[in-house]
Design a protein around this nucleic acid. Sequence first.
DNA 1: ACTTGTCCTCGAGTCCTCTCGAACTCCTAG
DNA 2: CTAGGAGTTCGAGAGGACTCGAGGACAAGT
Lengths: 158, 158
Amino acid sequence: MSDVLSIGEISAQTGLSAHTLRFYEQENLFVNPVARDGAGRRVYGSQDVQWLLLATRLRDSGMPLAEIARYAGLVRAGAGNEQERLDLLREHQDHVRAQMERLSASLDAVTAKISLYEIALVDGDPQNPWSDGVQDCVVPAPPVRAGRQQPPHPSRRR
Amino acid sequence: MSDVLSIGEISAQTGLSAHTLRFYEQENLFVNPVARDGAGRRVYGSQDVQWLLLATRLRDSGMPLAEIARYAGLVRAGAGNEQERLDLLREHQDHVRAQMERLSASLDAVTAKISLYEIALVDGDPQNPWSDGVQDCVVPAPPVRAGRQQPPHPSRRR
DNA sequence: ACTTGTCCTCGAGTCCTCTCGAACTCCTAG
DNA sequence: CTAGGAGTTCGAGAGGACTCGAGGACAAGT
């Protein structure tokens, strides 16, 4: 039960690049300090894979790396802070739910717009009110109140 | 029907800061070039509000500004490219749906983890298998295949 | 001996989306 | 006339999450 994985192997298993893995380590995203072999190479275990899979889930659902690091820190600290971990997770759960609602509202707006275009195209109505395409922006009105909220962005695909 | 809005007013109505509005203009996110008054000040109309509300929806659902700019460009170009607009929107629709699926999978994982902690806490089992908190990382396995996909990030709230 | 492959460190660069500040112009009210 | 508030431009900086590359080490295969 103590499989030993190289950075290349764990990279393959998690989908994270070796570069990213080192970066994550540096950012304290691991629960345990990463061990090294005689030649100074990183040695991972399967529990690291499990952890990383969870971590990427958290990240993909919008948790900042710093927060994941905080969570990792709590786990690293050992028993006694379960309540804190739970709070952190619950808070994130709320974020995710909110995110999904926003997404679903946006999806509705996009879907509505798509139908409009579909209708217009099927009707073969080439130069109708589409010339400016703005009047049809009748989207449900955003639930937004103030400030920014949850912008995403990929970075470069490798 | 031609209300005239200052940058401050449109900022209030869209939740975007004046700085951001200027930035968006610079990035060609507007359908029409923004008019100016005698003193060189920006003058917006209510259609701009509508457009911005749609644009923020697109952005909030993960469309990069560059893509929104492309869409705006198509609309600006006038009738004749409806198919292209439709394609763009359909593609985004797919992205949003995929995003929601990922989110929902992550939510499941988080929810599962939360239940585990809840159980452990209710059982008042303070120093149980929680010491390392890793063994419970039995998350459904990510649908991820390769490369990065949809990281989010807020920037600074103002 | 040499090539290949995988790994190491460290620092810099990139992308995206803002966000801020400095320095200046206008308009309006008192 | 003056002060305040809202606008303007331009350029720099910030934050987040990578991503890349140079330069070097070591181990195994031919």
